[in-house]
Amino acid sequence: MSEELDRRQFLKGSAMLAGLAIAPGMLLYDLAHGRSLNEPASSAVRWGMLIDTSQCESGCDDCVKACNKENGLPGGTRPTDEQWMRKVELKDMRTGKATSLPMMCQHCEEPPCVDVCPTGASFRRADGIVLVDRHLCIGCRYCMMACPYKARSFVHEPLHDQKPDVPRGKGTVESCTLCVQRIDRGENNTACAEACSKAGHKAILFGNLNDPDSEISRRIRTVASTQIRADLGLNPGLHYEGL
């Protein structure tokens, strides 16, 4: 009942706003593309990334730092520390060609972590984001065994001073959320992509893979890109260019 009332109020409010905003045009555009706080994520959207490794600079880890800051991660690199995002340096064993790229949860369409999770704590949201519900996670770490990308971390110690919009805690598994708190607020960009642009590399392009007119879809249609371990057939939401 209260939900219904809430929605009606919201609709009334947004209609008024839309009316006001028709002249500038900008706000109307946003309302058509964004999702209100009361609306569930929809499968009309599939969030993904295109990472251009030719633009990614070896030794630069601005994306990782931005991720840590956005999500309140301490940024340690001991084997027991959580790393949602890491920079990987590659050297082709035949040609010697060096490549640098960011690695994180690949947000698979068929995520092995979701398949193996006994309680359903690992799940894939309608808009393609793979998440852990920490209320259900019992900390068995089977998802970490199953992930082909080593994208997940286990919280080994009690935590303090988490960020209010990124709850995390001891004894549960976590990984990149594609900055879900930002997406739900309607800011359709991740902290890492933002930081990469700011550093002038523009190696990370975030967007909606299901919208044929989005920049990411247009780029994936025109340039050669690949998914990591594409042979596994998991259809990750992250695409890499120049690999």
């Binding site: 009361n38 994520a41 799940f123 949201r125 519900d133 209320h135 879900v180």
Partner: peptide, 20 residues
């Protein structure tokens, strides 16, 4: 609220963050 927030992304009327 926590179920629909975590699983569906509905950041609705009730929120622990707002309580705090």
């Amino acid at each position: 609220q926590r179920t629909i927030t975590v699983h569906q992304g509905v950041r609705g009327r009730y929120s622990l963050e707002k309580c705090v």
